[in-house]
Design a protein around this nucleic acid. Structure first.
Length: 299
DNA sequence: CGTACCCCCTGGCTGC
DNA sequence: TGCAGCCAGGGGGTAC
């Protein structure tokens, strides 16, 4: 599902409405998603105020005034819908999205009602997503999900040296390494393909071959680093404009989810879009997931 | 230890 | 239009 740009788009859609809002009621409709819901979740959060809606990698973080944090992974099909008052929207919905979650759909698993009358509904057909509570007094650095995460690629301190350091430890192909959230967060199967294509780096390259003997990044890894940032930023920008259009619109599930035009993803058998390249986009499978690339210009 | 696989689950699309 | 088969944006757990 959602990779970093989509999660960020959802965050930006929720934040203005949820920051500072007090939770009046939490209804949990089933015992689990991917994992069981945290014990006594409703009891622990009813009456609490959301300080802000944040993000770490692909996780949404609902930080509470009492110091606890509700962590939500959207998995493949998770989405949030806000309803109540004049509002009814699902930030970053899928282009083929099902009916908007109003709180009583078959896949509406978690419903949070706020003091101001707003309702936030978490909908997740495939239930690969999950909800986790970082208890008050437990720092994010100690949390089992958050502590293992690698650097944020859009933070100013992210650079090719850091990536080189993390990649030098692994013997796996670069495609797999960049999907590993302990090396760098935020990339999923779509954007990792796009990043490698734009960088001219083969997904089959062994990660350590992009690091020089002295531990410094190769030219290719510098390109990868820059393209990670560029691709994610472009996608966020595109999602941001989508969100603008979506705000306040009720029942519209036709908006495109990925406004960015993919250069390789889903384009098996089509011509490589790099100017001057006569290659054809190939599809292979790496770790059971589709990889799209041009063997001619990605080396 | 690091790495490779196998799933968890529903739904949309394609092709017969 | 029915249905089987395939595919899907994630990532934890486990077996090597």
């Amino acid at each position: 599902m959602p990779e970093l740009p989509e999660v960020e788009t959802v965050r930006r859609g929720l934040s203005p409405h949820l920051d500072g809002n007090r939770i009046q009621k939490i209804e949990i409709r089933r015992p689990d998603l991917r994992f069981p819901f945290p014990e006594d979740l409703s009891k622990k959060l009813t009456g609490e105020v959301i300080r802000n809606v944040g993000r770490r990698g692909k996780y949404l973080l609902f930080r509470m005034e009492n110091g606890s944090t509700l962590l939500n992974s959207l998995g493949m099909s998770g989405r949030w819908t806000l309803t109540g008052g004049e509002i009814s929207f699902t930030p970053g919905t899928f282009a083929h999205g099902a009916a908007i979650g109003t709180g009583d759909g078959p896949h509406d698993h978690l419903v949070i009602d706020f003091q101001d009358g707003l309702r936030a509904t978490y909908t997740d057909a495939r239930r690969f997503g999950y909800i986790h509570l970082v208890e008050s007094g437990v720092s994010e650095a100690e949390d089992r999900f958050l502590s293992v995460l690698g650097p944020e690629p859009l933070e100013p301190n992210f650079n090719a040296d850091i990536l080189a350091k993390n990649l030098s430890k692994t013997s796996s192909p670069i495609k797999n390494a960049l999907l590993n959230q302990s090396i760098v967060v935020g990339l999923g199967n779509i954007y990792v393909n796009e990043v490698l294509n734009r960088s001219g780096v083969s997904p089959l390259r062994i990660s350590s071959s992009l690091v020089k003997k002295n531990g410094k990044p190769t030219k290719g890894l510098e390109l990868v680093t820059n393209q990670i940032r560029a691709v994610l930023l472009e996608a966020i920008d595109a999602g941001g404009s989508t969100l603008q259009d979506f705000r306040g619109v009720s029942g519209d599930d036709d908006l495109g989810w990925f406004p960015v035009n993919f250069r390789v993803y889903g384009r098996e058998g089509e011509k490589c879009l790099k100017s001057g390249c006569s290659g054809i986009v190939k599809r292979i499978v790496q770790s059971n997931r589709s990889t799209f690339f041009c063997a001619q210009c990605q080396r």
